[in-house]
């Protein structure tokens, strides 16, 4: 490519530089996606996996660009340490530790944002200064990116997994889980023990024992209790015993009829408004 006069980066207000992205190098006239890049700069973040000076923040990454593809594409600016893809910008999540790939949810195939961590800070600036009219290329002859039928067949093939490897993952997870549970139980035991009276009838009161309740209470249990109380009070009540009660019931009845009458009238009014009474 011959260097031309307007070979300079396009920077838009807001500090983002615009890079262009092409899927494949063999068709030169294809439309380009625009990637907006900027160095990653967030005040409150203290995350270690996104060092402020070496991280490039990329917007509008097409769905066919996976982590490995981005690593390849951006390594022209300097060697890449890690790539993190997310659906929307935000703090990095702690990934499920100890859960095998069989149990993690598959990613949605949508446009995403990327946090690219380079090994050297200079690469960030190199990327930002990249001219817009020299597009980055996703799929090249050396490292083709598969989409469509190829990809789906590959996906299907990958989804066939051996039961034994799955079993292995499960066993590992369940062992961990059991160990955790055991530790938990032991801790609770100890706490309970501390509350027990010793031989002389003394109970040691500590700060931590306050949290442990005698009975675990839940919302549903509370509701049930309230309902029971209400029922009890209802049962005790006398109905239609005194004259005033009887009168009240009658009054309620008429009020009910009136209300229904009004409701029906309203319904009719709506239907009339829609001309629903023309039989044909």
């Amino acid at each position: 490519m011959a260097p031309s006069a307007d070979q300079h980066a396009r920077v838009i207000p807001g500090g983002f530089s615009v890079l262009s992205l092409r899927f494949s190098e063999d068709d030169a006239h294809a439309a380009l996606h625009q990637l907006c890049v900027k160095e990653h700069r967030v005040r409150a973040e203290s995350s270690t996996n996104r060092p402020l000076d070496r991280t490039l923040f990329v917007l509008n990454v097409p769905p066919y660009c996976t982590e490995s593809v981005l690593t390849e594409v951006f390594s022209r600016f300097g060697s890449v340490q890690s790539v993190e893809l997310k659906e929307r910008p935000g703090a990095s999540e702690t990934s499920h530790s100890g859960v095998s790939r069989h149990f993690t949810d598959t990613l949605r195939q949508c446009f995403r944002v990327a946090y690219i961590v380079f090994k050297h800070a200079s690469a960030v600036n190199a990327a930002k200064r990249h001219p817009e009219n020299v597009p980055l290329v996703v799929s090249t002859a050396e490292r083709p990116v598969r989409t469509g039928i190829h990809k789906w067949i590959q996906q299907y093939s990958d989804s066939l997994i051996k039961a034994s490897s799955l079993q292995q993952d499960i066993d590992q997870f369940m062992n961990n889980y059991d160990r955790q549970k055991e530790e938990e139980a032991e801790r609770q035991n100890q706490e309970a023990e501390q509350q027990q009276e010793d031989e002389e009838g003394w109970v040691k009161v500590t700060k931590s024992s306050r949290g442990v309740k005698v009975r675990p209470h839940s919302e549903t249990a509370n509701e049930r209790m309230l309902k029971r109380e209400k029922k009890k009070s209802e049962r005790k009540e006398l109905l239609n015993f005194y004259t005033w009660q009887h009168r009240n019931t009658q009054k309620e009845h008429i009020a009910e009829l009136r209300k229904k009458f009004e409701e029906d009238k309203q319904r009719i009014a709506v239907l009339r408004a829609q001309r629903k009474f023309r039989p044909y």
């Binding site: 917007l59 509008n60 929307r88 446009f111």
Partner: peptide, 11 residues
Amino acid sequence: FKTSLMNARRV
């Protein structure tokens, strides 16, 4: 222009 609203768009 917003960072959360850039998907498949052009500036």
